[in-house]
Design a protein around this nucleic acid. Structure first.
Lengths: 163, 163
DNA sequence: TCGAGATAGTTGACATATCAAGTATGTCCG
DNA sequence: CGGACATACTTGATATGTCAACTATCTCGA
């Protein structure tokens, strides 16, 4: 998968100036976008971006409740990440967990009244920001191109087993 | 900047299905890309992505040494973030800090022998991954389009003062 | 029914980012 | 010169992501 150690330095296809610029912008983007979203949510609704994701996912589930593992799968997150977050959010009073009736190992997640109010209060401002920052500045063609490009990159990383 | 509370729900321009798909991919990308890079570096060179950034920035400085603040500016990071990281990296033996001769408040950062070896060992594999995952899968036109798109989005967020 | 292995979730340790506060030093103007 | 303010950096508190155990429960086949 890689040039032999001895000549690794010589055989490496280093980045030229344009490539370095794009690479810099890409890393800046990957760090900046989630942070910008986080700030908007914290300032306007006192909820973090990851908390918002949880609230949104649970609120959109068919029964208004779902299993912790399904939540992890829906979001594409690790179980332990979800578990830690649920514990914090439960202590903040946004949701509660109770043993699943069908499976003694499982946990059913449901929003509390406060959780419902939080997501309903936060959603309009959040969606508005997403629209203004992501969609409004881009033509439909640029949006499609972006989506295809991101998928290409992700697949290339997935092939290396690192995504 | 936002619709009045009373009618916020009604006036919000919600995302349609395509937009939701793209939005999901974008968030997945922003989280997945740095993580994939981190994993490659950790597996192949036992160094984290942020540590690599520091090593690379210091190694590319003109004198092989630079001020902590310049480092923060170069990377676009907060001072405290750099400070915490430098402390950890110093304890790992990759670099050392000493009082700047010109300014009693400043710190000069320089790589140790181990630091130089670490960056020299890590760079080829890292650059190879970046090339294979980011540049090789994309045509030059797609690369340019991506760069422009990212800049558009970043500027839109900067206008809102949240980037 | 019993035990091996799979599955659901939790927990603790550690690395990291961010913010607010603190310390030390430099600068500049009266 | 001297004090107010700016600047450089550090530190501590808190939130978070990740990994590697760990516990509890379930499933399935002999």
């Amino acid at each position: 998968m890689e040039a032999p150690k001895k000549s690794a330095q010589e055989q490496t296809r280093w980045l030229n100036e344009n490539e370095q610029l794009m690479w810099l912008e890409l890393r800046e983007f990957a760090r900046g976008l989630p942070r910008a979203l986080d700030r908007q949510l914290l300032e306007d609704a006192d909820v973090s971006g990851v908390e918002y994701s949880i609230l949104a996912a649970v609120s959109e589930s068919s029964q208004g409740a779902l299993r912790s593992g399904d939540l992890a799968a829906t979001l594409g997150w690790e179980r332990s990440r979800v578990s830690h977050l649920l514990k914090r959010m439960e202590s903040r009073g946004f949701l509660h967990r109770c043993a699943a009736s069908s499976d003694g190992r499982g946990q059913e997640i449901a929003l509390t009244q406060a959780g419902w109010e939080k997501i309903r209060g936060a959603a309009p401002g959040h969606v508005t920001m997403v629209r203004e920052v992501i969609f409004d500045p881009l033509t439909p063609a640029a949006q499609n191109q972006l989506l295809e490009t991101l998928i290409l990159i992700r697949h290339a990383a997935e092939e290396r087993g690192l995504w």
